[in-house]
Each structure stands twice: as C-alpha cells, then as structure tokens.
Design a protein around this nucleic acid. Structure first.
Lengths: 154, 154
DNA sequence: CTATAACCTCAACCTGACTTTAAGTCAAGG
DNA sequence: CCTTGACTTAAAGTCAGGTTGAGGTTATAG
C-alpha cells in the first residue's frame, strides 16, 4: 500500500462509518479517492477529517446536499487547515440557536395550553398552522435515544 | 348528510391536512370514519381534534406509531375530554426538554471546539461518537424554514 | 335529469440516507 | 498456489410519511 493512503476498511473503522456509506458519499460527491492498480479505493488521510465533518454536520441537521455545498467551498488547491474547518462549522451556530428557539417556543406554547386547557382548533396556538418549523423530518427518529448526560463542560 | 357528520373534504379543510393524509391516517389506524350509503367517509366532529392532536404531536417529534399508541390510550367508551387530551400532551414536556438539552450540548461543544481550534478526530468532543442523539432523522428538513416570531406569550 | 364536484380504491411513486444483495475481483499470509 | 478476507460494481431494498394517478362511483346544484 502506498504510504499515507488508506483503504476503505481503514477509513470506515477509524471514522466510524460503514463501507457502504463511504461509497455512497463518494457517489454523492462528498468525498473522493484515488485507485490502486487493481481498482480499489485509496483515501488520503484528510478524508478522515472530511468524514468527521460530515458526521458533525449531520448532527447539526444539515442535509448531505448542504454539506456538499459547504465542502465545495473549501480550497481545492491545498489540504484544508483547522481554520478552514472552523470557519465552516462556525456557520452552524445560528442554525442551532434557531432550532433551540423553535423547540423552546413549542414547549412554552404547550405549557400554556395545558395550563389553560383549551386544546381547541380555533383558540389554541399549538394547533395554529403557520409555524412551518413544524417538521423534524421523516424517517426513523432516534432523537432521544441514548442521550448522553452532561458530565461537565469540556 | 346526517347531522354533525363531516365529509373528508370538510375535515381536510378545517384541519388543514390533505385528503390523502386522512386516508393514510385511517389506514394506519390513527383515525376512523363511518360510511355513507354510497361508501363515502363520514367523520365524527371529534376527529377534528384528533387530527389536530396528531399534528401537534408531529411537531413535538413523535412518529405516527407513537401517536397511535398515545391515541389508543384514550377512552373508547366516550368522546375524549379536554382533560384526556391535556394528559396526553403533558407527557411531551420532558421529551421537548430533552431535545432542547441535546441541541444545547451540541451548541456548547461546537463553541468550545471552534474556540480551541482542535476539530480533530481524537481530541474533539464534537467528533465523539456515542452521543446517539445525533440524528434528526432522514428526509426533507424544513426545520428552520418560516420560523414564527415569538409575538408575546399566550 | 344531467353536469360536475367530490368522493372511492388500489397501486405506484417520492425524498433522504443509506444498506443489502449478487456476482465477481484483488491482496496478503501460509 | 491456494485460501480467505477485503474489496469491486450495479441494482434493488428499507423506512417514514405521505402524494399522485388511473379508472370508476356518489352527491348535489340547477
């Protein structure tokens, strides 16, 4: 194996994603790889960080398409630096703030609604369509499973 | 039309959901309807509240399966009262609290990570797998679109 | 009585993020 | 050389939460 190049199995193990996911990311233009003589994928070490970025971005709620856009804004001419990555992830902050605010609003509405006992289509804010921030997306929701205790700030 | 019974179009209009969604909910056992002589659906008025409940529960992040479970705990012998509905939705509060806490933790980790500049697979909490509360689910995410301003508590 | 709007069923399709399967190839140890 | 595990491709499958379409029926206004 050429120096400093990783097989798909190594990247999968180290980054904690499935082989199939790496191939899928490649097909979606999120990562890339050179090939060995026999046609096997060989990843640059920086791919590890790229994949890690993808995973964190997903936690924040970005779609793969948005992540692709973010990754495309990285410099192509050189391996991205810490500063490049920090710039990208700093952009997530307002997004998280907004997600939190949406949930807090919902919680508050729920509290006042249970308090007043209305729960009616006409009068109740909860039933008010128009807050299109409603959906948390389709698909399986493991949102609340296995949430880690706070265990003290970093 | 028999008194106090609603057609699917009326329910769809008043509850703000598509006809197809109502049929789908019925197929999933979330709502039910009697039939007219010609086989058209006739909904009891309480179906409006039931559908409203489904929509709010979805905002909170419950799957249709969970919602079906919650609805199944309602009394079958009588039309549910405000108190019945309030009891169900009160159970959402801790769930929302937890969702908010998860996002706040993520935001805090992000902040410290940008501050320290690490963003590395080994050292960075952000890249730490094990917080399985990661996913917000697959599918389209309109989480942040059209978030309503707070406009004063109810 | 007729036009037409509203309704019916059933099957197929959609999105997103992957995983699974089938059938075959490559790499490394013994 | 042979075996075994890691790898290759392409296509199909999965899940949730519906939507869309075809082909046909019912309800109601005029």
């Amino acid at each position: 194996m050429p120096p400093d190049l990783l097989s798909i199995g190594e990247v999968a193990d180290r980054a904690g994603v499935a082989h199939s996911a790496l191939r899928f990311y490649e097909s979606e233009g999120l990562i890339s790889a050179s090939r060995s003589g026999g046609g096997q994928r060989r990843y640059h070490r920086s791919t590890l960080r790229r994949v890690a970025f993808i995973k964190v971005a997903q936690r924040v709620g970005l779609s793969l398409e948005e992540i692709r856009g973010a990754l495309a804004s990285l410099p192509q001419s050189r391996t991205p630096t810490k500063i490049d990555w920090a710039r990208l992830s700093a952009a997530w902050r307002p997004r998280l703030d907004e997600q939190i605010a949406v949930l807090q609003r919902l919680r508050d509405e729920l509290a006042s609604c249970i308090g007043c006992g209305c729960l009616s289509l006409g009068a109740c804010k909860l039933y008010n369509p128009g807050d299109a921030a409603a959906s948390l997306g389709t698909g399986p929701r493991y949102l609340l499973s296995d949430a880690r205790p706070v265990e003290g700030g970093q």
